[in-house]
Amino acid sequence: MKNIFTVFLLIFLFSSSCYYSDPSTYEVEIVSDYNPSVEVLSNLGIHDSVAILDSLLFEYMISIDTGRLYFADLYIGNLLIYRSESLSDSIWIDPYYITVPGDYTLTMLAYYKSYSESLADLYNAEFIVYDTAWTLKFYNEISR
């Protein structure tokens, strides 16, 4: 009796590994020649650094020829301070974003559509990143 149940148990355990499975893949090579020129214009211009005593209105405009912007992130140091899906936008930058006065890098990462026609691109999940940066000098420290 015990042997029968053992055999049945083994057969059932074994049968689950018998379910059909096929790991075959069809690999497609995609070569994208999409390489647009990207430019970011801002009111900070080409200054080496910008001093902030109180607060600063930062305005920017992104231009991508024949492209589509997903979103742009603004960082002060490693701190994400703003995300926008607009090609042109503005934000007030003030010393609340920092704890210690000094030089900080304001970085903009612009994510735009790759147009590679890959699987991820079709689902708007593949992007190219354009980055640009400015140096900010904070003078005021305002405790939080």
């Binding site: 379910y19 991820a120 691109d121 999940a125």
Partner: peptide, 25 residues
């Protein structure tokens, strides 16, 4: 008795993969 079979379709490129499967039991 137990029988099983199935079918499989796939698309893969450098960005990811798509699998479509049927598994009959």
């Amino acid at each position: 008795a137990f029988s099983t079979t199935g079918t499989h379709a796939n698309y893969t490129d450098y960005s990811g993969s798509l699998n479509l499967d049927q598994r009959v039991a």
